[in-house]
Computed example of a mutant assay.
Amino acid sequence: MSYDHVLLPSGAASTLAEVDAYLTTQDGQPATAVVAEIAAELDKRNAELPEADAFLGAPAADGGIGATLFVSTPYDSIGHVRNLLFELATPHGYAVYDPQLAWLVDPAGRVPATVTHGGAGEFPYLTRELAHLWIPGLGEPGPYLIVETGDQVYIQTYRHPNGVYDLEYREGSADKHFTITVDDAAEVADLVWEWASGDRTRFDTLNWRRLTF
């Protein structure tokens, strides 16, 4: 079995139904220049590796359909391929769609950050939409999300089985490390996004406790 990702232009869709509709409009179309360029680079990097280390399940060039690119990979290469897709596609204004998880990761409105999703690995940016997609769905075996924008500068949350979230942020040093408990997923997502985007307006109104170890 293989794992699939699909690239499509940022803004082409915002819901899963719109993704499906957009993909349908591309059926039978020749690959655009951007899609062909991304596919060629994927195939080039794949060809540079020994066959045993290949990360594509099929030539990427075969997956170019109109303005979309279907990329198939073995399960043990999912993280590597996803990172490559962000590296190659984001500068061209392309979103990454994961049909297995039903996640559309669109760079529109993004804040560059190292985002660690406990169940799915690392991502290179956060958007408001992703915060509201990921945080309510956190669960075992990794019910946490970390957004890091600098050395020891981060916000993170952990979702307990009862739906309560621990939320904490650190601003570079131990004396600027605070925590709070929140029982509403949407509020956690809002706070994570506000912190990441530089809006700390609500933070001073909450009962943060300084975290000590």
Results as ranks from 00 to 15, higher is better:
residue 179 T to V: 13
residue 193 W to R: 04
residue 205 T to D: 15
residue 193 W to S: 03
residue 201 T to G: 09
residue 183 D to S: 15
residue 196 A to M: 06
residue 193 W to T: 05
residue 207 N to F: 07
residue 204 D to G: 04
residue 187 E to K: 15
residue 193 W to V: 01
residue 178 F to W: 11
residue 201 T to I: 05
residue 207 N to A: 12
residue 203 F to V: 00
residue 181 T to A: 10
residue 211 L to V: 06
residue 208 W to I: 00
residue 200 R to T: 00
residue 197 S to Y: 06
residue 187 E to H: 07
residue 185 A to Q: 06
residue 194 E to A: 09
residue 185 A to F: 12
residue 197 S to I: 08
residue 201 T to R: 13
residue 196 A to N: 04
residue 205 T to M: 05
residue 201 T to M: 03
residue 206 L to D: 01
residue 187 E to P: 04
residue 200 R to F: 14
residue 186 A to T: 13
residue 193 W to C: 02
residue 208 W to M: 12
residue 199 D to A: 09
residue 192 V to L: 09
residue 207 N to S: 13
residue 209 R to F: 14
residue 200 R to Y: 15
residue 198 G to L: 04
residue 190 D to F: 08
residue 197 S to V: 06
residue 176 K to W: 13
residue 207 N to M: 12
residue 181 T to V: 10
residue 203 F to Y: 09
residue 191 L to K: 03
residue 187 E to D: 14
residue 210 R to W: 04
residue 208 W to E: 01
residue 182 V to E: 04
residue 192 V to G: 05
residue 209 R to G: 10
residue 178 F to Q: 07
residue 198 G to T: 04
residue 194 E to T: 02
residue 183 D to I: 05
residue 188 V to A: 03
residue 180 I to P: 03
residue 209 R to Y: 10
residue 202 R to P: 00
residue 179 T to S: 15
residue 190 D to H: 07
residue 200 R to V: 00
